[in-house]
Amino acid sequence: MSPAADAGALLRVEALEIAFRVRGGDVLATRGVSFEVRQGETLGLVGESGSGKSVLCRALLRLLPSPPAQIRGGRVLFDGVDLLALPEARMREIRGTDIAMVFQNPMTSLSPVWPIGDQVTEGLRIHRGLSKSAARDRGVELLRAIGIPDAARRYDDHPSQWSGGMLQRAVIAMAMACGPRLLLADEPTTALDVTIQEQILALLADLQAKNGMAMVLVSHDIGVVAETCDRIAVMYAGTLVETGPAAEVLGNPRHPYTLGLMRSSPRMDEHATRLQPIPGQPPDLARPAPGCPFVERCTFARDACRHESVRLREVAPGHASACLFPESVV
């Protein structure tokens, strides 16, 4: 990355290595993952199921269960401070205030037994010491900001009374309550309908523009990140295989996996009747082989791919690919 880019980095992840100790060996969930998110920017993290997106997000907040999770190396610099080295008490403060997270399933992100409003403002009372009535006023404001009609009355509703889309809004409001500088959204729309997905993405973009916060938006759908993100990072089998500005990555993909993801997505803008799937399946993370992790499924693979080690290398300013032969990808 260019030094100029470093200056504005809010979050900088360096060579993060996470493993799960399981019976029959270690699962390497992320291997040498490095990226950065600048102030006010949205980074889209895409990759298929099991590629390590959720593990990565949770690791940033130190939310992984340990054991079995183990951080084997690397640093997570937030505002220049290594989160991995902080005492747990300090980390607890950062969670929810400076960095907040939205999870995939809105139905299980809220407790079914408490009023939604109280759950949304819980962070304000804990971290900001707001009184119950002050929190309520702020909570109603928050619910209004996320587009809940009649917010004052619905503050006391229970989760079962709201639809999935509304609950996900509430979860977002909860994350936004303390005005975080970084929001980690782990597949916030995967459990929702396309129409509701559109509303939620609009909401996130709107909140981000208003508060100038940075966001990491995780999705397995490359279309979702295409529409919302400034930059994209493509993840495969625990490694980042391509990073760069959204327009650049989508317009000029330089890794066969990115290209494969794009080709296999059903599209509305061209008359395709047959999709082009990526053949095969992702490799077993418990048995990492030397060489490029994508080699078994890659149509561009050559002999060198099997043993030469791959790492992200810049192919254009700000655009990096982990393919040994990025020029041949078309």
């Binding site: 639809s163 509304m166 396309v194 509303q199 599209r267």
Partner: peptide, 22 residues
């Protein structure tokens, strides 16, 4: 039809639609 995400990088200007589904 318009809700289907497209594979074109375009950070759309969006308006927050209210949660009308209920």
């Amino acid at each position: 039809l318009t809700a289907v995400p497209q594979l074109v990088a375009r950070k759309r200007a969006r308006v927050v639609q209210p949660a009308t589904e209920m």
